[in-house]
């Protein structure tokens, strides 16, 4: 479904991706782990076409990224951003229904609002949240609204960028469970990037470890603890000693 082959990307002298190869089958949930600054977000943004790779190919459903009908391409995706990235100038329901209020998926305003409230309910928020503004919500509620927005147009592919960053452990667990439930329920293909190992265990079918711009290890989550890969072992156990330098 999503195929990255030998993808390279540099920003000036800094080589962020140095030959990333990844295949994500349809309907599976891949979690990419790795330290800060290893290129996890850049990988996601390359798939979305927000960043153009210097070399390599990226295909989604067999079609290369950056084709002519960009709106149709992006309509297949939903994304939960690390900080929520909610539009603070509009109320919650308009954030959730953003795609349903304009463009190819435009619906009547009342219908879009109903769908938004339904999606808010799906992520555990009451309808009275719909008319609040993002600044009036807690961090956990903002993540839920971001999740509701990501699924509002029922995309085939959902990306989650650090979904539990900044949340307390209980709220992080709630968000992890929600993500897993929603991905299974929708049959969507999911790519998540995180440092949080509890998220990895809750969300992933497969795991890929990104380090120094390449995938160091990839495989099913069940094999992660017995991988024998020194990079992966150091990361999942949070050890300061190992092949990954503690100070980067």
């Amino acid at each position: 479904m999503i195929e990255l082959d030998n993808v390279h990307k540099a920003f000036g002298p800094k080589k962020v991706l140095q030959g990333v190869t990844l295949h994500v089958p349809q309907g599976t949930s891949l979690v990419i782990i790795g330290g800060s600054g290893t290129g996890k977000s850049v990988t996601l943004k390359c798939v979305l076409g927000l960043i153009t790779p210097d070399a390599g190919t990226i295909r989604v459903g067999g079609q290369p990224v950056g084709g002519t009908d960009r709106d149709a391409f992006l309509a297949r995706f939903g994304m939960l951003f690390q900080g929520g990235a909610l539009f603070d100038s509009m109320p919650v329901w308009q954030n959730v229904a953003f795609r349903l209020l304009r463009g190819a998926l435009k619906r009547p305003r009342d219908e879009a609002r109903e769908i938004a409230i339904e999606k808010l309910r799906r992520v555990g928020l009451k309808p009275d949240v719909a008319d609040l503004f993002p600044a009036e919500l807690s961090g956990g509620m903002q993540k839920r609204v971001g999740l509701a927005r990501a699924i509002a147009a029922e995309p085939e592919i959902i990306f989650f960028d650090e979904p539990t960053t900044g949340l307390d452990p209980i709220m992080a667990g709630v968000i992890n469970d929600l993500i897993r439930e929603i991905v299974v329920e929708m049959g969507a293909t999911a790519m998540t990037i995180t440092h949080d190992m509890s998220s990895v265990r809750a969300i992933a079918d497969d795991v890929a470890m990104l380090h120094d711009g390449v995938i160091k290890w990839a495989g099913p989550v069940a094999q992660m603890d017995a991988s024998g890969d020194p990079y992966l072992d150091q990361f999942i156990h949070g050890r300061a000693d190992g092949p990954i330098e503690a100070v980067r």
Partner: peptide, 16 residues
């Protein structure tokens, strides 16, 4: 502010 809080990226992913 929209740029640094990724709201511009969010617009793009929402086909806008």
């Amino acid at each position: 502010t929209m740029k640094v809080t990724e709201q511009i990226d969010a617009l793009v992913t929402l086909s806008t």
